[in-house]
Nucleic acid binder design. Structure first.
Lengths: 314, 314
DNA sequence: ATGAAAGCGCTAACAT
DNA sequence: ATGTTAGCGCTTTCAT
């Protein structure tokens, strides 16, 4: 391995001069600077992360702590991780993946966390470094999340705008924040437009969704707002089987699932790249002891082929 | 931060004695060992990764280098990453995620790579540390892969065993190894059972698959072996729409996609946990300068609801 | 503008 | 069985 000392010898200067060339080049005379830079590139010198970490007492490593069970990991996490890794790298940080919930002792400069629940709050607040959560856990922990209420609000409003008369919501039978928010978004849009709310709550299961559709006696000009893509897929398949005409179906999340269907699903997209960017920005601020505010990312609705197309709201 | 020195002072010994208690406890008298262990736990001492890395000249970090574009990342990568992270952690290693293909300069003890192509071979073989690839790139690089030929072979044989007379293969129009292997597995099973091969090659697109089905004039007792779940989804939806009876459909990969359908797809599963375990084992051997052999993992076929069920082959 | 010295946390090699 | 020394690569502090 090429070290600072190697470069220093080659350039006939001290290691400090080399270090200065790298970090405070303005403090070094041009002549020496050039010859040091030459030595660096000739030798192919790369600073050792370990050496820097030791003397700076910083690791330049951020961990992503996934608290879900492996089997339940959402498919789009891979994308989120990669986006985060990319953004971090631009800032000179590295991303370390950790999974086991008992493993918080890792020596890092900060932690991203996903899948955290209220019961994790104590453990998380006790960590000796900054945390940013993907998804709200509690006010104590800065988070980034999609604006769930806005998502269902936007998509419901869209359905109304393209002429659906009757709009049904199939929600998630869960007491988590995101589930309540999604329901609220639908209700707000319904009230604003003086329609009648029709709400059903089920588990996140395509078969339950299909079974529910069977009992609904759907008419034309009806649209179904689903709280997740998975519910939407069940609804959609049942509707197609029955051959009911002009019934709109929408989902929520829509990163992979909605692609695996002949008819592209109208859905609320998780803007993963923006979520990643925001999470990284917040982390860097926290590391610099700056204050941050939890952020809701504005969702984007994707108009697919499972709803009418007339005009598009933004 | 609590250091070795803190522990040493507390236990009234030298730092080396503390280090020995941690790494070679048999070399330390029981009396001292106990008092050092007491000091360690009272202070909550955790060895510094950086300090160890510096003196051992090792990082205890493995990177996973994903060479695909973010947008094309397979959904099941998240699972693979987590499994690998878990296995590595048991061995005292940490998993670092890197994505940008130009970023191979990372200081790590080894690299896992996925999505590598022939054109990456040169770069990969020049890396100064061990590599294990997920998926075959060339003989130069140790890899772990699912036994693609065996997968299609097994599933074709299964279809024959449950009584399908006519078995069609819809393959991927790609010259990559895995695509050729999957086709070969089908052909081998067909020849062994003295059936007639019917092969079509298309892109990995559900619409192309559906369009192909339209031209096929399918009869009863026919089954379609698809090279990917995505193709299978297209086939399946088209068949359901047409209401053709007793036509079997199978896929390949089947980690997430096959779950998002009312009718669970019969498919060849990527045994991700075993792939992860094998990749980690190989990496550790390589780090220890032992020889390794590239490994094909035996696939498992999942019998879903898109094929007849009579008896199960293993 | 440049350099020397000390220290970050740890361990291998060498004493005792 | 235990301790001392030196060194891993780098940066901060304090000379010069």
């Amino acid at each position: 391995m090429i070290t600072l000392t190697d470069v220093a010898k080659r350039a006939h200067v001290s290691t400090m001069t080399v270090s200065r060339v790298l970090h405070h080049p303005e403090q070094v005379s041009e002549e020496i600077r050039l010859s040091v830079q030459k030595a660096i590139s000739e030798l192919g010198y790369k600073p050792s992360r370990v050496g820097q970490a030791l003397s700076k007492q910083r690791q330049f490593v951020i961990q992503f702590l996934i608290l879900e069970d492996v089997k339940k990991v959402d498919p789009y996490y891979a994308k989120l991780l990669l986006y985060i890794a990319d953004f971090l790298r631009n800032e000179g940080y590295t991303l370390e993946i950790n999974h086991d919930a008992t493993y918080h002792a890792s020596q890092v400069d900060g932690t991203f966390v996903s899948g955290a629940r209220k019961s994790d709050l104590k453990m998380l607040t006790e960590l000796p470094y900054p945390i940013v959560s993907y998804g709200k856990v509690g006010q104590e922990i800065p988070y980034v999340d999609i604006d769930n209420a806005k998502g269902t609000f936007m998509i419901t409003k869209y359905l109304i705008s393209v002429g659906y008369q009757n709009i049904i919501y199939i929600g998630l039978n869960l007491k988590e924040d995101f589930s309540l928010e999604r329901k609220k978004g639908y209700e707000t849009a319904i009230i604003e437009n003086k329609r009648k709310a029709h709400i059903f709550m089920i588990n996140n299961d395509e078969h339950e969704a299909a079974a529910l559709v069977n009992q609904l006696d759907l008419k034309e000009k009806t649209a179904i707002v689903s709280a997740t893509d998975r519910i939407a897929i069940g609804v959609l398949q049942r509707i197609q089987e029955c051959g009911i005409a002009d019934v709109g179906v929408t989902g929520f999340d829509g990163v992979f699932i909605s692609q695996f269907s002949l008819h592209k699903l109208t859905t609320v997209e998780q803007p993963l790249k923006e979520i990643a960017r925001t999470m990284v920005e917040m982390m860097l601020k926290l590391i610099n002891k700056e204050n941050v505010k939890s952020t809701l990312i504005k969702p984007r609705i994707i108009i697919g082929e499972t709803t009418r197309k007339q005009k598009v709201i933004r």
